[in-house]
Design a protein around this nucleic acid. Structure first.
Length: 215
DNA sequence: GACCAGGTCCTTG
DNA sequence: CAAGGACATGGT
């Protein structure tokens, strides 16, 4: 916890953040409304984003790309639209659970806008099919809260950079290093994904460590 | 054909 | 409680 490796990890995390920011500058990320972002967050689980975009387009075409619409929709219609994202039966159930939570338990998304982030996060985690990463994606990109997202790319980048902090503590590590603004969280996560998806796959990891960033 | 993708849940040992 | 398996399509 307070060992010297934690100080080094902090420095390494800072180098990842600043190095990538220098390389990419501002990049756009998830311009959709809250409902669409939440749907995308479920669909992207263990799935390439390009396939998620196709599914979102199909849902939109059919007027199903919102929480109220999903809540009213028939299962098979949802399944058909999201098939290309894989795990489509499972994801249809998860979307239904998400929609039921906001429409029935919360009384609409609007009611949650003013909730404290911690309360909102607990509520999201209580929905079957929403784990830590999905919850933080929804908070950060859907509700504009400063809750940093730790995904497979971030974990690999951290490992490549020599960070030894255990996975469950990476969120706190990056949140300590970053400025507290939601925008900073958006950008840092977007940068990591942009960088890592090209060179930091399961099998190979080509220069995704800090050495490649700081020169 | 094998392997992998911006996870999560349930079942075992 | 850690590890393993299931969920499933689409691209390399």
């Amino acid at each position: 916890m307070s060992g010297s490796s934690s100080v080094k990890d902090k420095q390494r995390a800072r180098q990842i953040v600043t190095g990538l920011k220098r390389q990419y500058g501002d990049i756009p990320w998830w311009p959709g409304d809250t409902g669409e972002v939440m749907i995308g967050a479920i669909l992207t689980q263990q799935t390439r984003w390009e396939n998620v975009e196709k599914a979102l387009a199909l849902l939109t075409e059919q007027g199903l790309c919102s929480i109220p619409a999903l809540h009213a929709a028939a299962g098979p219609d949802i399944e058909a639209a999201i098939r290309c994202t894989g795990f489509y039966r499972m994801k249809t159930r998860r979307l239904a659970a998400l929609a039921a939570y906001f429409e029935e338990t919360c009384g609409g998304i609007g009611r949650m806008e003013t909730m404290p982030t911690a309360v909102l996060r607990e509520g999201l985690l209580s929905v079957n099919g929403i784990g830590e990463e999905t919850a933080d994606s929804i908070l950060c990109y859907g509700f504009g809260r400063p809750s940093f997202v730790i995904d497979a790319y971030t974990v690999r980048m951290a490992a490549c950079a020599g960070i030894t902090t255990p996975r469950q503590d990476l969120k706190a590590l990056f949140e300590r290093v970053l400025p507290g603004s939601t925008r900073a969280y958006h950008q840092a996560h977007a940068h990591i994904v942009e960088y890592a998806k090209e060179r930091c796959t399961r099998k190979r990891c080509e220069g995704c460590g800090i050495s490649a960033l700081s020169g």
